[in-house]
Computed example of a mutant assay.
Amino acid sequence: MSLLQPTTESGRAALDRIRAEPDRAVLAFDFDGTLAPIVPDPRDSRAHPGAVAALRALAERVRAVAVITGRPAAVAVEYGGLDTVPGITVLGHYGRERWEDGRLAVPDPPPGVSTVRAALPGVLKRVGAPDGTWIEDKDHALAVHTRRTADPDAALELLRAPLADLAERSGLAVEPGRMVIELRPPGMDKGAALTDLAAATGAGAVLYAGDDLGDLAAYDAVERLRDRGVAGFRLCSGSTEVTELAKRADLVVAGPSGVVEFLEELVADLGG
């Protein structure tokens, strides 16, 4: 059974536009949970087998292929093997960083990041964060993971208010996700990054694929682009952990393996 069967009229229109005008199509993807399976330790994350080959094939057929991730751009490139995809743009830290053609543009982090870095261990100790809670330092952001704890959801709930308070005092934004709360610089999100990319490339159609709460901003951007005449397709890498995207998607597939199958079918449909 073909995966190229959107469940919404707008999704079908967008897929038709991508087929008809691939040279004006921009395809953008989240990394973790979309192109790469979720793993207990984010440092072990790698692209799903077949993902890079599919992206390479698509890059030869469409206007632009991009990855928009909360990770540092260089880390996503390394973990995904994305430097083998011709012309790909990797926007890290929700669009604050840009990797393209081997060149990396990274702004200075705001002072609040170092404030949070120093304060976070004490906050976790004070509130009694359970064993298995750990801090991921992303240089320009700090993420607190609960996936390794005995009750990840309860640990996340315990930490939500104290981390929000720390972020507010430090001038940072809170980004919730799958068993993680990230404290990061404000002023940029995946929606803004996708909108800028669509404008810079003159996109006539945009596809965005994601799996987590941070991808909702990109879904919002797809809706706004539709209002401007840009056909938009929202692909969800489905999971039982986060269901908010599935409710708004034009098509839901079974995790990163489903995303890869979808892309392989799209490549064939575009003359692969």
Rank of each mutant, 00 (worst) to 15 (best):
V39D: 05
P40K: 10
P40V: 12
D41G: 04
D41C: 07
D41I: 09
R43S: 13
R43T: 08
S45A: 15
R46D: 09
P49H: 13
P49R: 14
G50N: 12
G50K: 12
V52M: 05
A53M: 08
A54F: 06
A54T: 02
L55A: 03
L55H: 08
L55R: 11
R56S: 12
R56Y: 06
A57I: 01
L58G: 05
L58V: 08
L58W: 07
L58N: 04
L58T: 03
A59V: 03
A59P: 08
A59E: 05
A59T: 03
V62C: 08
R63V: 11
A64I: 02
A64S: 14
V65H: 03
A66N: 05
A66V: 08
V67G: 06
I68N: 00
I68H: 00
T69K: 10
G70K: 02
G70E: 01
R71M: 00
R71N: 01
A73Q: 05
A73E: 04
A73M: 05
V77A: 14
E78S: 11
E78M: 02
E78F: 00
Y79H: 15
Y79F: 14
G80V: 13
G80W: 14
G81N: 12
G81A: 13
G81K: 11
L82F: 10
D83F: 08
T84M: 03
P86K: 12
T89S: 15
T89K: 11
T89L: 15
V90W: 00
V90Q: 02
V90K: 02
H93K: 01
Y94D: 11
G95I: 00
G95Q: 02
E97L: 06
E100P: 04
D101W: 08
D101Q: 13
G102I: 09
R103E: 13
A105I: 04
A105C: 02
